[in-house]
Design a binder for these strands. Sequence first.
DNA 1: ATTTCTTATGATAGCGCTTTCATCGAAGGT
DNA 2: ACCTTCGATGAAAGCGCTATCATAAGAAAT
Lengths: 335, 335
Amino acid sequence: MTSHRKARLVDVARDAGVSPATVSRAMAQPSLLALETLTRVRDSARRLGYLTDGTARALASGRSMTIGAIVPTLDSTIFARVLQSFQSTLAREGYQLLVASHEMSLAAETEAVRVLLARGVDGLMLVGAERSQETLRLLATSDVRVVLTWVGAPDFAAVTVDNEAAGRLVAEHLISLGHRRIGMVVGHLAFNDRQRARLAGVRQAMDQAGLALPDALVSEQALTMAGGRAGCARLLDLAERPTAVIGGIDLFAIGSVQEAQARGLSVPGELSVAGIDDIEFSASMMPALTTVRIPTAQIGQVAASTLLAEIGGQGRGEHTRLPIELVVRRSTAPT
Amino acid sequence: MTSHRKARLVDVARDAGVSPATVSRAMAQPSLLALETLTRVRDSARRLGYLTDGTARALASGRSMTIGAIVPTLDSTIFARVLQSFQSTLAREGYQLLVASHEMSLAAETEAVRVLLARGVDGLMLVGAERSQETLRLLATSDVRVVLTWVGAPDFAAVTVDNEAAGRLVAEHLISLGHRRIGMVVGHLAFNDRQRARLAGVRQAMDQAGLALPDALVSEQALTMAGGRAGCARLLDLAERPTAVIGGIDLFAIGSVQEAQARGLSVPGELSVAGIDDIEFSASMMPALTTVRIPTAQIGQVAASTLLAEIGGQGRGEHTRLPIELVVRRSTAPT
DNA sequence: ATTTCTTATGATAGCGCTTTCATCGAAGGT
DNA sequence: ACCTTCGATGAAAGCGCTATCATAAGAAAT
């Protein structure tokens, strides 16, 4: 609180009796300075309450030390978790996280990319592989490093998970239990390649077993528990109701269990239910949910490392596929 | 994709045959220009793929159009929700969100404040009123506008919720149902004034009813469902077990219900359980949870508006207290 | 006509930092 | 001793934009 106006680099330089360049070095590459000079500069800086002006630094150096992340929404266990680990890994390296959400709109994503690029982010985390032409153009024109999450694409580094396999895994599990008529509650498929892949995986397993997955047995819903309930309700109202329901996300499966129980159907006695994600709640609900474990926190952490490697110059578009695993619990049973 | 190097303001100016100042105006205050000039500049900008360099703009103008938010963690339904609405309100006004999390560490919060201030944020959202001296000093020295959430403090604008009243509300409800021995699972109280206030509220209600809340009946736990389970387990293991358990957050209450059920205790028959928050799941679990509704999304939205008003020069430290409400459902019953 | 506003645009000085490039003394090599 | 290398620092040119002030040309007022 020494002075009133914010201290600048030159103020510190004057106070310490060195040139601005030296102060700059003291802040950014201390190893270049003689120990004595360094301490003198640091003392002055502390005394004056000096904080490097990140804006000016970014302009002069060309690097903002800022990473952008564009997710569908922050209001989701899954993305929140990914962002948390992404952010903390980044922070450890001195990077800051700029977040934007697009609420499942392709156009909004494009706009977010434009804004973040204009902000001069050094890297960008995106979800999924579906992009507008305009977004791709923006990305190509700029020189930001990009890391995709969940689903990858050729020209970008990516940290993915085999969503198709996830769908296959649950479906095969259910089929092996003797289920023949299986329904699925899935998120809106437009601009959501994760859900599309999971559905495709379920389809594959069914096909392979010679079973059908008619459109009537697939219900698209908003990604909430209430959506899961509504979707399950639709499936249960069918003349030929399914003996098992797969939730494209755990939230759907949880909603489905609730709907079934509300109708007096026992799970898994009369209806088997399985999800994909393995969120915290799934393990401890009654009955505990059979699901596929997606290593969400790890996605964020690896995405951050990958992106930092890209920015650092090592790593050329590396793809990491994280393992997933079927977790059989109590919500599924033989027919 | 016209040129290879990134287009700058001067490039657009040259292309459009105007001065840099005019292009700057075209981007920031279009109303100052003649319509014809404006379109000409815009055409050039589009053709060259020009994006304003936010960094340079921030340096020259002194405003970064960036808001920082420091929360305990992103990985929480509650904060994720607040941030989602905060972010989308901000985005509508052209502001970008820079997030940081401190994982319940006072020192980490201070560091985050330092970093965000250095980044030149125009505003800052903080959670709770507990701050280190150093943080307060940093805030006072800089000229960022600040908005507090959940709990307010004299010198800052704030959007709060009466956490004490929330605790009181559930406790009174339970007391009115005839419960005399009530336990509480609460988050770690260090650097968490929200949980402290909720606990204090419960205490008040108990005191007023002439009841005691011995330390043994209060279990501090990490803010997860598993924490809720563990806390409830501790309370149920007591020689004199409580007839009702209050969760300092809904997650605790949910975990408590699970623990009770896992022990074969019926809820609310043998144990009443209530929470505070009203997260999505609470309404639809079995039994549906009695809780206090906290308007999370609204907190984010109002916090954003408040902060923007502060930045805009209107509004001097306004405090908004959002209403909360007891929601009685099926998890509580008379003794 | 002359003066006074307005409106649209230009010229240009920074914003606060980083980063060559240059300098200079001390250390190392022969 | 003499040249080279190295380590530590300084000088100063930007980074790409905004904002102030100045200017010019009409419009309005007298």
